[in-house]
Amino acid sequence: MTNENIIEVENLVKKFGKFTANDRLTFQVKKGEILGFLGANGAGKTTAIKILCGISAPTSGKVSVAGFDAVKHPEKIKQNIGYMSQKFSLYDDLTIRENFRLFGGIYGLSRKSIRQRTEELLKRLELYEYRNRILEALPLGWKQKLAFSVAIMHHPQVVFLDEPTSGVDPVTRRQFWELIYEASEEGKTIFVTTHYMDEAEYCDTVSMMVAGQIRAFGEPRELKTEYGVKSVNDLFIKLARN
């Protein structure tokens, strides 16, 4: 982690009619930092992520991701981020290699670098020999790891992961987090949401959203001391119930 801010959000407000989904969010995320973006269902996480990805415009406030303004240059942001969620991952009816080629092409990588990255990433997952398999019949854990690799294929500065480990077995879940650590060590900023509270402990920083506002933001260790709780799970329950 360095001191360079890669995400800067200042007084971000998003309203839908009279409903305020995001209420004056202000925070910074550093290069290489792993941020756990937590909150109850309906707290406004998804809305905030959409704005940070340049898909949705804020009602007011300043948002900059990877050095680009989310209002003025959303398309530049899209070039510099990776995104993976449980819902949107890879195409089930294509082979592993075809998926890599497709998404590499979408992000404008040259044929040569697509080939290089595919080989590099698949060898890292020890799945290179399966590169011509159709995705459909592969185990969920593999698919999630592959989806993550595709999301970082074009060396994005920020990777958004929306519940990436949902329903994955406990061992694969931890292997997935090792991939996250490695990406972070390469200097990629990771922005992750999860319902597994033990995973929140693996983050450098956690943000706790309650009813559209960020109620707590900081290192898990410090927050636990500050609120006098034993785990992030207890912290979550304490804050979200109030």
Binding site: S166, G167, H195, N233, F236
Partner: peptide, 10 residues
């Protein structure tokens, strides 16, 4: 409880 936050799960 899949996809449900920790509070609602409890």
């Amino acid at each position: 409880t899949t996809g449900v936050d920790a509070v609602s799960r409890k």
